[in-house]
Design a protein around this nucleic acid. Structure first.
Lengths: 193, 193
DNA sequence: CGTCTATTTGAATGTACTCAAAAGCGGTGG
DNA sequence: CCACCGCTTTTGAGTACATTCAAATAGACG
């Protein structure tokens, strides 16, 4: 039930007044999930936007063969949602679940819109946060198209230094876009030239 | 020198007052570029955010072999920038150039920030636009990791129906992430099973 | 402990790439 | 108006990076 991480995140971009902080806090919902538990399943409408306060969530898509492909990991301090579903109330393409026991804060969409309307600084925060997200998506896209598997692995290690120790290797493989077998061979130099 | 497309784009999200429209218009800069001309070169700092009014721009990254990889096409009505460079004043990783003779409107970063501060509705517009951009980046990412080359081509045709006729095939290949030779074979069924 | 899941290893396979060369296409100038 | 030039597209053969499938091994959790 601790919102300090989220408030600190906001404070990095904008300085809210005490009453504004109260108003934002009033709109927060707190939730705990156990490992492997779903937060969002594809097909559902994602009417929430989440901020992780403990543990780690992930979003992923499933392809025609049933293989999972991780889009994002969200350790504490990260935001996560299926944005298309959130803004258009369309069925989600992404699944979001917990990699480990986790806690998060979420805003319901009506509350989120109301806060943006009522508190200009909150809307500024969200614009800036959105710009950051765009920047990282652009970067990841560029990485994916210009780097090979080994280089993408290195980039991953720098992006999620804390996760690399705890995350099962197959999750990392899924994120960088290779099979777990191939990642294993790559890291053990089993690939014969 | 026509800002109607941009104002119409804003009007889809927020209703600006006449004086606000004037203020936004005052901050606009208009520019024409010829085919192949650069708008941004990697290494430069991107201090502008662009809105295309005619023709078509593209952003792309260059890999270690010197191969170009298209990140985005921006026909009339689309926004384009290297967001990481724009927000952090870091050297751009992306190049932006004109695929055909084009016209665009740009905002300088200080003006852009000032408008956001002075006109809450403008900031709302940018927040919503940002959310849309995030949604499309998420979608493209999911497409790239879950679909094969032929399926990505189909998605491209739906996303840019007007471009598919005019765009050189090698540009399309670069966007969907295959070599021009492979795209050619794919479309002509030269790939022997 | 025992079971379930993750990782490793190997062999065969496939999808897409590289390199090279030919063919097509569009614009420009003689 | 045709000829040439540069660029794009096509075609082919050989290759590489990564996958699939299968089985053995190792770890983690109850």
């Amino acid at each position: 039930m601790d919102n300090s991480l989220l408030l600190a995140g906001i404070a990095k971009y904008v300085a809210l007044m005490p009453d504004e902080i109260d108003r934002v806090t009033d709109a927060m919902h707190f939730k705990k999930v156990r490992r492997k538990q779903f937060v969002l399943e594809q097909g559902e409408v994602s009417s929430r936007i989440l901020f992780v306060t403990a543990g780690c969530l992930r979003s992923y898509a499933v392809d025609a063969n049933g293989t999972e492909h991780v889009l994002q990991f969200a350790p504490a301090g990260w935001w996560i949602t299926d944005m298309l579903s959130f803004i258009n109330a369309k069925p989600a393409r992404l699944n979001i679940d917990a990699i480990e026991d986790s806690e998060y804060i979420y805003f319901n969409k009506p509350d989120f819109e109301e806060l943006n309307a009522a508190i200009p600084k909150f809307e500024r925060f969200n614009r800036l946060l959105g710009q950051n997200a765009i920047a990282s998506y652009q970067h990841r896209q560029v990485d994916n198209i210009t780097l090979n598997a080994m280089e993408r692995y290195s980039v991953f290690c720098k992006l999620y230094p804390s996760l690399i120790k705890t995350l099962p290797q197959k999750q990392v493989a899924s994120y960088i876009g290779v099979t777990p077998e191939f990642l294993s061979k790559m890291l053990n130099n089993t690939i014969i030239k």
